[in-house]
Design a protein around this nucleic acid. Structure first.
Length: 460
RNA sequence: GUGGGUAUAGCUCAGUUGGUUAGAGCACUAGAUUGUGGUUCUAGGGGUCGUCGGUUCGAGCCCGAUUAUCCACCCCA
């Protein structure tokens, strides 16, 4: 057989033991916060029926769904004329029926609909699993990456939104981040602005354009707006809104003035005020609200199912895309035939958070620890002598390993050193004769002779 | 999908206007040290210079194509 040069599929990564320890540090941290706020974990399959996923993410998103080729003679059912014409797009439904999940929200919506009779509403769930996108990889963008989603369905209370602000703050702070912004906006408010301009149908074009403000500046936004069907008069009306600055309360006051004629716009403002009010009460005595929460009218977010509040989190310490986002969607399950169920949720981008923590050196030293004790192995006799100790230490809950073959001590100590094992137990003729063990502390180099009971007491 | 950069040892990279046998650091193996790691010293293994073609007496270096990869845009976490 020809030897294939080993390589990774584009946009994927291996995770070494050290990397897994760091990744688990992130997962465990966010998980502990989710649980504290009353969320329970679920998992859904890696792949779904293709029709479950298509049409939920817009045309751009649909293109990025990894589709799974049907098994067997997958071309048999394809119409000859489509094959003849090499019409890839129209062929898709004939050759693929399943696809890898693109996010965790849509599978969750399917889950809610399928399990609606078992669920007690409001249902609060979190989910930490990989998702796949056929995107072109670059910095902070992978084809396989993990999302940590928390959502609640069946509750329209804005307390949920406020708690998500607290969850973001608590989890990211626990991970060591010190300077990040939790940006808040509301789709209704954006709809109100489009309404006042007399172009409610262009709300998506408008939000996509003003979303780019920090990247291309006001002039760039204006050019884009013109290209998307807005007039110079619209731009004059929009300019003061886009350029809003100052504390959140001041922004809200100004928006109230501007949005006076729009009922939906005022509703959006009202929701923002309520959320901020809850956050204030829930973070009394801290600087959370002033330092981390920012009302940002230019925050758009692409997913078109959002209908109310929207969130996005960015770190200010490293150049990186958003590390989290989410929002409220009034009718997500409607696509699966269940009307009137509202949901709101957020997501943490674990892989980007990893890259940020790595760049800032924020991973704790202790995540790298695994084995606590290594027992050396010189020969068969010493190995036999050591086995009962191995059993006792493990029974006492101490992560212990016996070097699996007789080898030079130098090599065994180098193994312990490389694996950051803090203690080594040396077993040789001398120790066996005296019914003892030599315990070596690898950090200080100190060494003691102890019997089995003393050793176990010392290590456990 | 659009545009740009890069490709030399396991990893990070040098390599002169094109000129003998292509280098360094790290990593690895062994020895200095027969039962003591990290530091140090010594030695060693490891390369079809991404691939194919062209120019040339001669190509790691110049030209073309191709593949891979990274970055930016689009979009997103």
């Amino acid at each position: 057989m020809a030897v294939i040069k080993p390589s990774l599929a584009k946009g994927t990564r291996d995770f070494s033991p050290a990397e897994m320890e760091k990744r688990n540090h992130i997962f465990n941290t966010v998980k502990s916060v989710f649980v504290k706020y009353g969320y329970r974990e679920i998992q859904t399959p890696s792949f779904e029926n293709l029709q479950t996923l298509t049409g939920k993410y817009g045309d751009e998103g649909d293109k990025l769904i990894f589709k799974i080729l049907n098994s067997g003679d997958y071309l048999a059912k394809a119409p000859a004329e489509l094959l003849e014409a090499r019409a890839s797009g129209p062929l898709i439904p004939y050759i693929t029926e399943r696809a890898l999940r693109y996010d965790l929200t849509v599978p969750f919506a399917r889950y809610v609909v399928m399990h609606q009779h078992e669920l007690t509403l409001p249902f609060k769930r979190f989910q930490i699993q990989p998702v796949w996108r056929a995107d072109r990889p670059q910095r902070g963008r992978y084809r396989e990456f993990y999302q940590c989603d928390v959502d609640v369905v069946g509750s329209d209370s804005l307390l949920n939104e406020a708690e998500f602000v607290l969850i973001y703050h608590e989890a990211l702070t626990k991970l060591g981040l010190r300077d990040f912004s939790i940006k808040l906006n509301n789709r209704k408010l954006l709809a109100g602005i489009a309404e006042i301009l007399g172009k409610p149908e262009l709300i998506v074009d408008m939000t996509v354009a003003i979303d780019k403000l920090d990247k291309i500046g006001l002039e760039g936004v204006n050019n884009e707006l013109l290209a998307r069907g807005f007039t110079t008069q619209d731009l004059q009306q929009l300019a003061p809104i886009i350029k809003l600055e100052g504390p959140n309360a001041a922004k809200i006051e100004q928006l109230k003035q501007v949005l006076q004629p729009s009922a939906i716009g005022l509703a959006g403002i009202g929701e923002l005020e309520t959320v901020l009010g809850y956050v204030e009460k829930l973070s009394a005595g801290t600087d959370l609200l002033n330092r981390f929460v920012e009302v940002d009218i230019t925050l758009a977010r692409g997913l078109n199912y959002y209908t109310g509040c929207i969130f996005e989190v960015k770190t200010n310490e490293v150049a990186m895309g958003s590390i989290g986002g989410g929002g409220r969607y009034d009718d997500l399950t409607g696509m699966f035939g269940l009307k009137g169920i509202t949901g709101v949720g957020i997501s943490f981008g674990a892989d980007r958070i990893y890259d940020v923590l790595e760049e800032l050196g924020l991973f704790p030293q202790s995540t790298a620890q695994s084995t606590q004790v290594l027992i050396t192995n010189f020969d068969k006799l010493a190995e036999l002598y050591a086995l009962p100790l191995l059993q006792k230490l493990r029974a006492a809950g101490v992560a212990t390993e016996l070097y699996p073959a007789a080898a030079k001590l130098k090599k065994q100590l180098a193994y312990a050193d490389n694996k950051s094992i803090p203690y080594v137990v040396l077993v040789g003729e001398e120790e066996i004769a005296a019914s003892q063990f030599s315990l070596k502390d690898m950090r200080t180099g100190e060494q003691w002779k102890l019997n089995e009971a003393e050793l176990c007491a010392r290590l456990s």
